[in-house]
Design a protein around this nucleic acid. Structure first.
Lengths: 138, 138
DNA sequence: GAAATAATAAGACGGAATGACTGAGATGTC
DNA sequence: GACATCTCAGTCATTCCGTCTTATTATTTC
């Protein structure tokens, strides 16, 4: 039973979080965020994490005097990947059980409830874009 | 950056799936399902996996002439754990982004849409149980 | 009830994953 | 040209996790 490696590890995620928060940065700036007292060793650690993230196409590198790294996936992309993994491994690929779980077990705030009702309508494929536009204006 | 081990590994999950499908079983029966030609080695593998699952309180063991193992968590429990992990690591603990993702990115079937509308109403805490009962009857 | 068969128990193994590190060279900067 | 800083290319150590071995204790079968 071949084990499936993590898509993105904890340490890699920490790097991504910095890029999401601060935007594109050189390694040094990322290191400062993650290891405030960081010296050469920690710098190299961040470098290695970026190298792995790049090989997974999760960050891009702008080469130059100093390389600048930027996130190529955003939080929601990653949320999507992880939800997909859950759906595939536990629900035979179906999304519905996830949805049901969230609504029934976790419950909804009043805000959630309103937003959800609106989303259900807005993303109803039976409605044309024109109809949706009309709804928004009302 | 301490790494977080998987809650339940792939091989452990395979064992759980058998117990979910077939109900409580002795090791031998589980082994038959997972390794149809399984001999002593594979039997021991399943045994080790069950031992680890037991230490995580995911299966119970009824001791006797032959030990019988039973799942102590069901699929939805595990779905919940994994969704929680996603929410905590990527959404600051909030469930809303998961919900939003499912509805917006994955889309809803007509059936989903109907079921969801009903759930939103049913689990609305502003409504008393009496009101919900009334609604169901209508 | 002895031989054969099967189950339990305890530990060891090995490859891969992952966070962290070192050292040599390149590139700038004053 | 000296100094700091960055890049690059490894290496390392620990843990994880799927797997297997061996020994001991039941259980069956004739």
């Amino acid at each position: 039973m071949a084990r499936t490696p993590q898509d993105i590890t904890d340490a890699e995620l920490a790097v991504l979080q910095v890029l999401w928060d601060k935007g594109p940065l050189p390694i040094r700036r990322i290191t400062d965020q993650l290891y405030p007292e960081g010296k050469t060793a920690q710098y190299a650690t961040v470098q290695k994490l970026l190298e792995r993230l790049e090989s997974k196409a999760c960050v891009s590198r702008e080469r130059g005097g100093v390389n600048i790294y930027a996130a190529m996936i955003d939080r929601d992309d990653l949320v999507g990947r992880r939800l997909q993994a859950v759906a595939e491994k536990l629900c035979g690929g179906s999304w519905t059980p996830l949805l049901t779980h969230l609504v029934q077990v976790r419950g909804l705030s009043e805000k959630d409830r309103q937003a959800l009702r609106r989303m259900i309508d807005d993303f109803d494929p039976r409605k044309t874009k024109k109809e949706r536009r009309g709804k928004e204006q009302s």
